[in-house]
Design a protein around this nucleic acid. Sequence first.
DNA 1: TCGTGCTATGCAACTCGTTGCATAGCAAGT
DNA 2: ACTTGCTATGCAACGAGTTGCATAGCACGA
Lengths: 190, 190
Amino acid sequence: MALEHAILVSLLEKPGSGYELARRFERSIGYFWTATHQQIYRVLKRMESDGWVEARDVPQQGRPDKKEYSVADLGRAALSSWLHDPIEPESVRHDLAVKIRGAAFDDPAALIREVERHRQAHRDRLEHYLAGEERDFTGPEAGATAPGAPPDAERELQHVVLRGGIAYERMMIGWLDDVLATLARFGPGR
Amino acid sequence: MALEHAILVSLLEKPGSGYELARRFERSIGYFWTATHQQIYRVLKRMESDGWVEARDVPQQGRPDKKEYSVADLGRAALSSWLHDPIEPESVRHDLAVKIRGAAFDDPAALIREVERHRQAHRDRLEHYLAGEERDFTGPEAGATAPGAPPDAERELQHVVLRGGIAYERMMIGWLDDVLATLARFGPGR
DNA sequence: TCGTGCTATGCAACTCGTTGCATAGCAAGT
DNA sequence: ACTTGCTATGCAACGAGTTGCATAGCACGA
């Protein structure tokens, strides 16, 4: 399980509340990990009772109070130990691939719309990633780090992960084009 | 949930026992879906009691008997209805990406070996996929289907899914090279 | 004959993740 | 006054998926 570790990384990058974490998991962290607020609150609670993180009540004006979490020494140690443990390469789960093979026993042409919808979703994500790259990772050349910005290593590693997301979306778009061309060959000739 | 649907597709391609299904999930179906024998047995049982599949006892010589499952009408209908329902594009989970961003708070150089291990695993899978493609999808040209072989649509759709696996592995290898180059920049200069 | 290993099926306990629902403060529009 | 919507946290129940263990037949080699 890596959710706790994803939370540790995110809190090290910047402390925040459960709610804030949930929103990050819809954006930058969401490039490679997803979680609902439920799961985040539950895991945060466990992490707090394990001494991995510490909570601090922060009153806010115009909004409900929040609990701001930050990483404790035990959490840093746990992360470090996990980083040094080897993990297995992830196994894949593609509903869409099941559908594509299943289409052989139904109407292949009926799947075209669905595949087009997925292609569009991946195009949207790609645009979103590219906009984020433009915003966060272009501009001041190496060395000229803006004040308050994260140090070089952190920035560079965030960037390479984002490039992974971009490569993934580009690959998917190309493959879905291949799928569409294949499905088209069975639509009319059926 | 698509496990039941993945099982339906696999049984339509060829009837088989729970054990045989588990092995297919380690090979061709495993390109895009994984499941342990536990899950398969449990789901098969539910599917049988729902009337989606039918079991037939098959005595074997030199081996324990097996229960061979095949798809019933209700199962075919359930698959068809699922195929016509839209699904959400899958969300991603990459432990390795968590580690890479986490490396900013530890020793980036220590991650190099792990990334190299993953790169090798993806190279192995790519080789495996390419061998499968060579074996199953080259040779007799379109139209000249061998006797007993699955019909054109089934074959073509299996092939396009395999091409997806190949594209995925190639993308991963390329990205992991990018990751290694990035990590290398922080190893010596740390 | 004893261990190893493959086929074949299954139970029990657990963790992970999702969904539905509930609460509560405050802002802004109608 | 009422509704809508955002921040913020949480419970309860369920379903999906993993892990450890157990059983049993048979083959094969040391």
